[in-house]
């Protein structure tokens, strides 16, 4: 077994501790949601609707963290040419797209009873949707290019191009007049809301970290398997 590892440029990951991390992350999410629903009274304007924000806002924040990771790992890949950075960027992009989609759907569910419309073509909503489409394109690019070297380089470029849009999404409510409200600060939030929001933001962060790690492990194991299969077929020479 150990001799087989030498056929691949990197080892297959072992994931005992991360499994425990995952269980804890989901347990913490349940606890955070239960606590925040219990301690936060209904909002004076929107009543219970305010509880949707405990997932919508953390999903939006963590989507930003995921896209930031995509940019970091993509740049690192172009610099150091370590294939593992490419796989990490891909995992972060996939989780970021997931949270992006969740942000959009939850925003719509909140917007219908609050604003009166499911969707408005304002700068914040539109740029968030465009961001989602850009990374859907990124994931499609990865799916449609088979050669790992080429896929890594191209998706690093596409990922960087996509990630530079995130500051625009985040700042759009400040730069431009939108239907979407600007970011809340602790001053504009009831203390119990601010506490609940933070609890849930960390919960989604832990879930996102777990997802990225697991996705990366799956991709890396697959690459190791490909390397080793190739080595087996070629009779032991280690060519990537």
């Amino acid at each position: 077994m150990t001799s087989a590892v030498a056929n691949s440029p990197f080892e297959a990951p072992k994931s005992g501790r991360w499994l425990l991390f995952g269980w804890l992350a989901f347990a913490y999410l349940i606890a955070a949601q239960a606590i925040s629903i219990a301690i936060s009274p209904p909002d004076r304007d929107m009543g219970d609707l305010q509880k949707i924000l405990y997932i919508h806002v953390p999903a939006a924040w963590n989507m930003g963290i995921c896209y930031f990771l995509v940019a970091i790992y993509s740049m690192r890949y172009l610099w150091k040419r370590d294939e593992r950075d490419d796989l990490k960027a891909a995992a972060a992009a996939e989780v970021g797209t997931l949270l992006n989609g969740l942000t959009l759907v939850l925003g719509m569910i909140w917007g219908r009873p609050t604003w009166g419309v499911w969707w408005a073509w304002d700068a914040r909503l539109t740029s968030t949707l465009v961001m989602f489409l850009i990374f859907a394109g990124y994931l499609a690019l990865r799916a449609f290019v088979d050669e790992p070297e080429r896929r890594a380089q191209w998706s690093a470029a596409a990922g960087l191009f996509g990630a530079i849009n995130y500051p625009i999404v985040y700042m759009s409510v400040r730069w431009w007049r939108t239907l979407h409200q600007v970011q809340s600060t602790p001053d504009t939030l009831d203390p119990s809301y601010a506490l609940s929001l933070r609890l849930n933001a960390f919960a989604i962060l832990f879930i996102a970290i777990f997802f990225i790690r697991r996705r990366y492990e799956a991709a890396l194991t697959e690459r190791v398997a490909e390397h080793e299969l190739q080595a087996a077929v070629l009779g032991g020479s280690s060519r990537g």
Partner: peptide, 18 residues
């Protein structure tokens, strides 16, 4: 990129339009 991938007809608009 797109012209050298599989499914280039779909991939280029998907990457480009957003």
């Amino acid at each position: 990129m797109a012209s050298r991938s599989r499914a280039r007809e779909v991939l280029l608009p998907l990457l480009l339009f957003p």
